[in-house]
């Protein structure tokens, strides 16, 4: 049975990577998030005069010790370790929802789901394989995006400031706890809607709901209401993990072959 599950995972990943329409947003969005956005922040910090005071509210949230190396260094730290992680979350949400929509509703749309259901695998195993495919794709894209982002940003920092900045523990929490949990929530939302959804676009709409809390976090930081600290990320990761677990538990029971083939 394991080989069958691996075969579905491989096939699902290949289905997305060979489909330009699906794969392009998976490549394009991370590219904006990991190259364009950090570059804009770094260049802004380097060339906008400190006196402008636009980020004063944000800086006021930092402990006094954080400002020892100067406001510029403090801002770079904030951008890398507090602001970018929140923007970065868009990558796993988007990747997993595109993958899950293609994997579940896409199969339904192309009439290949029925053929898959005629295979000697319990429905739960097929679901598991499809969820794993979306999850693994999301994790691969997230980790790769982080590596590329770090390489770009450190290069820019070295050129513009002559120094490197070490990513904080926030990124570990982000990459290995929050990002997986949020990916699973996005996948589960798509899967739960897959029985009713008739098109991939329709099914992806639910995942947009996950972007809204992210927007609040981003606005909250820039307006100086809160700072996305390691503790906050950890609490969010645990809350999202629990939510993902509950959502997934109820997910499988909602489906029968009959409901999927409607």
């Amino acid at each position: 049975m394991k080989s069958a599950i691996y075969a579905i995972i491989r096939k699902d990943i290949r289905s997305v990577t060979s489909n330009r329409q699906l794969f392009l947003p998976i490549l394009l969005i991370p590219l904006i998030m990991i190259v364009v956005l950090p570059t804009m922040f770094v260049v802004t910090v380097r060339f906008v005069p400190e006196e402008a005071g636009d980020l004063d509210a944000l800086l006021s949230l930092l402990p006094v010790s954080a400002l020892d190396g100067g406001a510029e260094q403090a801002l770079i730290q904030i951008i890398l370790n507090n602001i970018l992680p929140v923007f970065f979350l868009i990558i796993p949400i988007m990747t997993s929802s595109v993958m899950a929509a293609g994997s579940f509703v896409g199969e339904k749309e192309k009439h290949t789901l029925e053929t898959l259901l005629y295979c000697p695998l319990p429905l739960g195993r097929i679901f598991y394989a499809k969820i794993m495919a979306s999850f693994l794709m999301s994790m691969m894209v997230s980790l790769l995006s982080f590596a590329v982002m770090l390489a770009f940003m450190e290069t820019e920092l070295f050129i513009l400031f002559g120094a490197l900045t070490v990513p904080s523990l926030n990124w570990l929490i982000m990459l290995f706890l929050l990002s997986p949990a949020v990916s699973l929530i996005a996948i589960t939302l798509i899967v739960r809607g897959s029985a009713k959804a008739q098109t991939m676009e329709e099914s992806q709409q639910k995942a947009v709901l996950l972007i809204l809390p992210l927007m609040l976090l981003i606005v909250g930081q820039f307006s100086g209401v809160l700072l996305v600290s390691g503790w906050l990320l950890l609490i969010l990761a645990l809350a999202c993990g629990a939510a993902a677990w509950f959502l997934m538990r109820g997910c499988r029971k909602r489906f029968t072959c009959e409901s999927l083939l409607k």
């Binding site: 192309k110 009439h111 290949t112 029925e114 005629y118």
Partner: peptide, 16 residues
């Protein structure tokens, strides 16, 4: 499913 083969109008395969 393990002992049967099925062809129906809506049981298609992968174009890619």
């Amino acid at each position: 499913h393990a002992i049967s083969g099925v062809i129906t109008e809506h049981a298609q395969m992968y174009d890619n």
